[in-house]
């Protein structure tokens, strides 16, 4: 499948990454090449093969429903770009 500049614009929006118009052509070109390489996987006949989701194929791991240690709010505050009254602060979401 060929990848177009429009595809790149679309996935960039989904991934919240800005691609400048100046970069778009070279990025789309690189990605088209990579996708061509990746496309080779479709030459293998995989009928009858179950997808391998995890190499260990263990069943789901459950833990006891008890709370463990958590980071103190003071540490979270130190790591936060902007923090007030116990909350991370971001620009307004609602007009």
């Amino acid at each position: 499948m060929a990848i177009t500049e429009e595809n790149v614009r679309h996935v960039a929006k989904l991934a919240r990454i800005r691609v400048d118009e100046g970069q778009l052509q070279s990025l789309a070109g690189d990605m088209a090449q990579i996708v061509r390489m990746v496309d080779e996987i479709n030459q293998l006949d995989t009928r009858g093969l179950e997808p391998l989701l995890s190499v260990q194929e263990t069943s789901n791991v459950m833990r006891d429903d008890v709370s463990g240690p958590v980071l103190p709010v003071s540490t979270i505050e130190k790591l936060s770009p902007k923090f007030e009254n116990g909350h991370h602060v971001v620009p307004a979401v609602i007009e």
């Binding site: 479709n42 995989t46 093969l49 391998l52």
Partner: peptide
Amino acid sequence: YYDAYYLQAMKVRRALK
């Protein structure tokens, strides 16, 4: 594109294993 790439890759991963 999910089936053509991600799902197919998981099946090829099985073939590799």
